[in-house]
Nucleic acid binder design. Structure first.
Lengths: 128, 128
DNA sequence: CCTTGACTTTGAGCGCGCTCGAAGATGTAC
DNA sequence: GTACATCTTCGAGCGCGCTCAAAGTCAAGG
């Protein structure tokens, strides 16, 4: 996380104006760091800035906003589950395709039949 | 995948100029569809367009490019594994936080102690 | 014939999330 | 004392991946 990014997050209200040293330089407290870590974690899993802004806003308003905040997190958790699913599918598709490339390379090395088998391999069409 | 996106992919060379009906309208073959499915799958897992362009380019050049293509796929597979990891971490963090919100809501419902316990919960700092 | 609607082309525009650059104040090291 | 780095503010710019608008062509239906 760069300094620029931190400034940006402050500008857009993801973090409250942070404490300053006597010279005006920012001093991030442990609480700030924890919050930033959380933000980082959400961003790393593609939570939109807008959602994070909403969440941050509610957080300022205290416990009475628990329900909506929980909803936001639950929605994002569902999004994460969906992402994991897609990633796993892609991962296994790639495993198949990579194996196929190894076969091709093998054929090339041993000067085997240059007409490739017409790719009947993976369940998901593998379009070279 | 919208028509706009298909045009875009054609423009940037992700798909070869596709066959046309007599009237000039595009006709996507099954091979085209398979390839598009693959592209979609890679995009859905955040492969950059640039990488896909490179891959598509090599694909046009035939089997001799197998090694580099395989490398691209292996790299992306590694990226996917890393993503899954982050997503899982975030998922479990959210499980903790959501549970915490349920507790808060419980306290509110029963009119319990309004001073929240100072959040000692998750391993990852949970910064409300 | 005329409308409607789906396609075609081209280039421009947009939303997101940073990312950077300039100009200035302050701190640390020699 | 004088470099030099490091922070500050501000607004502008950028890369990515679409997304859209405008203007034109063609095919079928009423």
């Amino acid at each position: 996380m760069t300094a620029h990014t931190l400034r940006y997050y402050e500008r857009v209200g993801l973090i409250q104006p942070v404490g300053r040293a006597r010279n005006g330089h920012r001093r991030y407290s442990l609480a700030d760091e924890a919050w930033l870590h959380f933000l980082h974690c959400m961003r790393a899993t593609s939570m939109p800035i807008r959602a994070m802004q909403r969440y941050a806003e509610l957080r300022e308003l205290g416990d009475s906003t628990s329900l909506e905040r929980r909803k936001i997190l639950e929605d994002h958790q569902a999004a994460i589950a969906a992402q994991i699913d897609e990633l796993q599918k892609a991962h296994s598709l790639l495993t198949h395709k990579i194996a196929n490339y190894r076969k091709i390379e093998q054929r090339i090395r041993i000067g085997g039949p240059q007409t490739a088998e017409p790719e009947v391999d993976c369940t998901l069409a593998s379009a070279s």
